[in-house]
Amino acid sequence: MGLEDQGGSGQIQAPAQGAAEQAPAPAKARAGETQLQEQEQIQSQKYAARAGNIKLFRQLDELEPDRRIVQESELLPGFWKRLPGVITTTVQNLVNWGRRNSLWYYPIGTACCAIEGLMAAGATRFDLDRHGMPPWFSPRWCDVMIVAGTVTEKMAPAIKTIYDQMAEPKYVIAVGGCAINGGPFYQGYNVVDGVDKLIPVDVYVPGCPPRPEAVLHGIYMLREKIARAGTRPAPAKR
């Protein structure tokens, strides 16, 4: 429509436009091919790096076999391990897998360790949420209670009540010297010398205060403990 209305001037311009379109087209195609090649190269490099990481992790696991998180398949006889594309497990292992990967935690922050260790581990840099651990303030929904800080005599009945309100299976992590045995205040007139005098503790994270990495390490130790719950011990030789 536009070309017909403009008349002769439009006829002259039309081939020029066509020529302009034809000329750069191969260049565009070439650019697209090179981009695809580059992307493939980058992707292959990523795959190679990932494979290298896996190789590195395997080497690390061989160096420190005790530190390694036990996989369910390794607890099974060798025949089942080698079946391709088939996952075999026991009900107990399946339950443990579910339990240890969504440990909602009830934070009991009674003193400075709550800020330095627990809240720092839960905030964006260390981010407990990416480990499947949201903080939740209802004990009925929580799996693990993290006690960070000095436990006073006035706080003791509240902690005991909250622990009793949690549903089984429930776990407790004591973060910091005060929660472990009273720390520097163990002779205090109003201090309970360790939260394990009130409730059973699964993992102790020492420090005054501990680093957030230490809290994460304690959480992963608890995961190993849950992975082994109700199963036979991991084989000594791998």
Partner: peptide, 16 residues
């Protein structure tokens, strides 16, 4: 002042 609180025993989870 003498602290007269009774001594507490350490709690251990029962084996399941």
């Amino acid at each position: 002042f003498v602290d007269r609180r009774p001594k507490r025993e350490r709690q251990i989870k029962a084996a399941r």
